[in-house]
Design a protein around this nucleic acid. Sequence first.
DNA 1: CTAATAGTGTCTGTAAGACATTATATA
DNA 2: TATATAATGTCTTACAGACACTATTAG
Lengths: 261, 261
Amino acid sequence: MPVTVDVVALTVRDDALHVLLVERGVEPFRGALALPGGFVLPDERLGEAARRELAEETGVRTPGHLEQLRTYGPLGRDPRGPVLSVAHLLLAPEFGVVHAGSDAGGAAWHPVEHLLRDAAGHPGPDERTGATVAGRRLAFDHERILADGVERARAKLEYSALAAAFCAPEFTIADLRRVYEAVWGVRLDPRNFSRKATGAVGFLEPTGATTSGGTGRPAALYRAARPVPGPVPGRPHGQDPDDAPASVPAVLDPPLMRPSR
Amino acid sequence: MPVTVDVVALTVRDDALHVLLVERGVEPFRGALALPGGFVLPDERLGEAARRELAEETGVRTPGHLEQLRTYGPLGRDPRGPVLSVAHLLLAPEFGVVHAGSDAGGAAWHPVEHLLRDAAGHPGPDERTGATVAGRRLAFDHERILADGVERARAKLEYSALAAAFCAPEFTIADLRRVYEAVWGVRLDPRNFSRKATGAVGFLEPTGATTSGGTGRPAALYRAARPVPGPVPGRPHGQDPDDAPASVPAVLDPPLMRPSR
DNA sequence: CTAATAGTGTCTGTAAGACATTATATA
DNA sequence: TATATAATGTCTTACAGACACTATTAG
């Protein structure tokens, strides 16, 4: 059975959630946008294959948090026949796309909002006009994989410290808040957010430094706290031994933050 | 690449969480306990393969909620070479094990507590003595898969209506509470539990009938509410198009219940 | 009656959300 | 000075958890 990996690489850019897509240079779906990915090599781990394919098609050895999303197929997703795809989710600070590989042209960040029609029936911004934007349909079942990846990212912000994976090594509370606002698509009260974020145990570590140069009062800089030594009893500890070592701590107890309704 | 499915089938029996295991009749790990599973056939869906293997090795066409857990491998898990395993999680009311297949003898329910050493360092009941119980080590990486399945089940009870998947079609609030107590390993206040469970929207549907014959006041009977028509805005809806249609509704908002610390 | 379990009511502490105020930078 | 952003404080309300009480069966 042919086995591939696909990568849903998400970042926050201009206060909006973006996904890294490549333009397919070969059939099937030539010219369509697709998630970066490809076949797993013999004697290669899944996470290794995901990072390798991403590097090959974007030219970047990426930082960020990588985790397995889920497995799709094998039926009804590739016209050439049954193919299994183990999808991965990468949450990373924005990185430049350096290189367009041999079989993938125009790797670039795309706003997620433009790519997903909301399952709840919310019209996408391009759907109000009734026109389908050319080239916006994703190849294979990648639209569903993207939707699942975004859903996972949204859910994980709620109970984990993963928001820091979207930020540079040092960041302000406002940076972090903008991540939540972009991923959840909501507005959060900066004062209440600050109180919750700084009060959560095992989440943030002050660096002592502050921002400078901008307008207004300088903000304190933080980094992600080291992963907790022992998992919290009775709660999943969220380790992922098969993937790369977690770059940020896993599960917070109690849940960090919830989107207000 | 060889692809298999493995099934973590969980149930609540005698107020304790149990997993369905088979004794391996062939090498490798002949004689050891293992999760039911086997190779995916050509042109077979993953969920179909999981239910088929379970039926072949236990003789039962099972009810219950089946979902994909995660994918393991391909390296370092089978001495014969790289094998990918797509693990599945089945949550079901207890069903009798009818049949022992050709390559699997002695399919039976086993208490989960005896099989997992807690990652947090809690000694297992057989570990206090320092003795490893013979035959209790699972084949391959199935101990880790089991741990992940139990972790998933515990987490899902918190924010979904999945506890009903462990119960018969009609059940009492006390039945449901015993599910939470068994899976989480905690004691819950029956009065507060009843108030929360009956008050949660989209969770329970009274049948109008009550229990009879037992001692004490008869209890009202409930069934799982139908899945909500539209997903809650801003929350994952937890549909699983690749698997069988969900037998119980997916995500509840707000989260149903949390284990007290 | 007693025993046993089911279900409802009440209180209290904690915390989320709304919003005011103070602090510290640049222009 | 004005303006902009950061950080802390106050208040109200909702709800989780602790626990008293009532309801309905069997024996």
